[in-house]
Simulated scan of single mutants.
Amino acid sequence: MTIGRGVIRGHAVTLRRFLVTFARDFRDGLALRRRGGGGLLVDLFRGPARGEERVVVQDATTEGLFTVEYPDERLPVYERFRVLPVLVYDDEDGNVRCTSCNICAKVCPPQCIWMVQAKSPKGTVVPLPEDFFIDMDVCMNCGLCAEYCPFDAIKMDQNFELANSERHQTHVFGLQDLLVSSAYYAQTHPEAWSGPEEVAERAKVAKKKDRRLQKALGVEA
């Protein structure tokens, strides 16, 4: 009898959540909108446009079904959520923070980062990357490269929708694929951007940017 009561109680909880889900959708005006399925050939209800997907927050107060109908519904992306590294450049002058010091490649556990250091017209090595590569299929999203970067040039991005039908070339990200503006990083990581460490790093980069540019152009100080 104890086992029978447990089964009945479980079905009752499931039925309650099922009914509460419909009541919640009617209350929020979502009863006549499609929830899930992605792009359909025949769609009686308008699906959400890109960037207009409903964000579903699940916590201890959540009632109803716990299914998130991705991609029409999404879980919130929090600031510390990390996927692949990106390289930050400053909006003011377009200078890339990376100095091609190779520290990120050395500390990378799966060794998925490699780069080519730039040279001046005189043939001397300058602290700028001519090219920068990350194999996203090998990257383990650990964030060590961003943690050890002395110039805060490499950061962890939140974009997780990277799947495609070809993996041998398109999954190796080059310099132009990895570059993001400082405004983009400030928007996705507002707390880190306004933190004291990031503010101090921006001041340090601002002091050195003119000297780095002169060296890259082969101009004597």
Rank of each mutant, 00 (worst) to 15 (best):
F45Y: 06
K119V: 07
V86L: 13
T124W: 09
V126S: 10
L84D: 11
E92W: 06
E191D: 15
V180D: 00
R82Q: 12
R80G: 01
D152S: 06
L15V: 11
C108W: 05
K155M: 10
G6S: 07
D90L: 05
E92P: 01
C149L: 10
N159I: 12
P190H: 15
Y185S: 03
F173H: 06
H189G: 09
L75C: 02
A163W: 09
D91P: 08
E191V: 01
E92A: 13
K215M: 14
L175K: 15
F132M: 13
V83P: 08
V83Y: 03
R16P: 03
F18K: 03
D131I: 00
A23T: 13
V13Y: 03
K209I: 01
G38F: 09
M156P: 03
L32V: 03
F173E: 15
I3T: 12
Y184P: 04
R16C: 14
Y185A: 05
C149H: 03
M140S: 09
T61I: 10
I8T: 11
S165P: 11
V180G: 07
N159K: 15
N141T: 14
V219E: 02
A105I: 01
A186S: 01
L175G: 03
V42S: 01
E191G: 08
M156T: 07
G143A: 09
